[in-house]
Amino acid sequence: MTFRRHGLTCQQVVELVTEYLDGVMEPRRRARFEAHLDGCDGCTAYLEQFRSTVAVIGRLDVGDVPAPVMSELLSAFRNWSDDRDGA
């Protein structure tokens, strides 16, 4: 296993992944982060797992609106709209 590749330990790398993925890392830090990944299979796998995790979360069902809820909301909308017209 690697040792402080480019000044970052694996234990430090795992704390920086969201910052990295958000693209808000300061350029020199980003270069060190990427250089570490280039030489470290463990952290490369970690980043890949992290990305897959985010992808799975993005595929969760947001769910449908239950029909009774929708019809209740639409009737509230009609009341609101009628009140406006009448005002």
Binding site: M1, Q12, C40
Partner: peptide, 27 residues
């Protein structure tokens, strides 16, 4: 709290902070 349990990294010596139990690829 750490993102990954500290037990998965080497504790001391030259390799402190390197993976001791690295994650496996999900590929």
């Amino acid at each position: 709290q750490p993102s990954v349990d500290a037990s998965r990294f080497q504790e001391g010596g030259r390799s402190a902070g390197a993976w001791s139990a690295p994650p496996e690829s999900w590929e």
